[in-house]
Design a protein around this nucleic acid. Structure first.
Ligand SMILES: [Mn+2]
Ligand SMILES: [Mn+2]
Ligand SMILES: [Zn+2]
Ligand SMILES: [Zn+2]
Lengths: 139, 139
DNA sequence: CTATAGTTTAGAATGATTATAAGCTATTTT
DNA sequence: AAAATAGCTTATAATCATTCTAAACTATAG
């Protein structure tokens, strides 16, 4: 459980003014025991349900992108109509449940190290991500 | 080099009527020596440049999705504003060049087999895809 | 040939995301 | 502490990839 004061400090250190909207977003994102995955719409709903008060969608987008840039969030690559974000910024992979449209962490330890035996000249590897699509086990 | 007649047959066998639009799309997609990656906009441009004639965007979307459903194309998961498709339907992975916004094949043989040591009960693995993001090697 | 189901098409609708620009607020300067 | 400034929030409009619609067209079965 992180206090508001700590979020204020974290924001200031990041060069972001500690507004009440940003502190609210921090509370929702970084106060839970476990990390989680979310879409912008999920997050707006969480914040508005918690505070019984509207927050501008633009503010949420702006803040999430600011946090992503600072490395406090990761964006997950899925071909879905909505972008997913992750409060788990460690190096890890994902299952994507096609039925539930839900991401599940696949820790690095649960996948053998991935050795890429090809390299593209003049290019540097930025990330290596595994996406395992899963679906109901029927038929 | 596949002839139109072969595409007609392939379409008929797939339960798709061999219209001239579909045959044109087949020619552009399945006549080249090498497989390739494309977006819908890329494809529309290729077709219109080749034939000096408009094709309806809706037809291209419909046909690509029909071909995808038949397994003649794969959709590649990238968080980009456009969806990418692949004429290489074999089991393989990708580099994504963040600067050029371009996909490059990473053959299965160029990656050690990926062993997923975690399983989600009641769920079946549909696919395992590796995406390696690359960028210019500067600084 | 005729009927029918399937297809193409232009254009409208959708929906996630981004842009705009006016008012508000945290912080700095005086 | 008040004023000035730069940064932030907001409602709303714009953007743009994709999907929908429904009317006209076409492949094909009978
Ligand atoms: Mn982003
Ligand atoms: Mn698709
Ligand atoms: Zn995760
Ligand atoms: Zn490929």
């Amino acid at each position: 459980m992180t206090s508001s004061i700590e979020f204020v400090e974290k924001l200031r250190k990041s060069g972001l003014r500690p507004t009440k909207q940003r502190i609210e977003i921090c509370k929702v994102l970084f106060n839970s025991e476990k990390t989680f995955h979310f879409t912008i719409n999920d997050l707006v709903k969480m914040i508005e349900d918690k505070n019984n008060k509207k927050i501008s969608l633009a503010t949420v987008y702006n803040t999430i992108h600011a946090f992503e840039k600072k490395g406090y969030l990761k964006e997950i690559a899925i071909n879905s109509s909505q972008t997913y974000f992750d409060t788990n910024t460690s190096d890890h992979h994902h299952f994507f449940d096609e039925k539930e449209k839900e991401l599940i962490d696949l820790e690095n330890k649960d996948v053998d190290p991935i050795k890429i035996k090809k390299n593209i000249s003049g290019k540097k590897i930025r990330s290596v991500e595994v996406l395992v699509r899963i679906d109901t086990d029927n038929q």
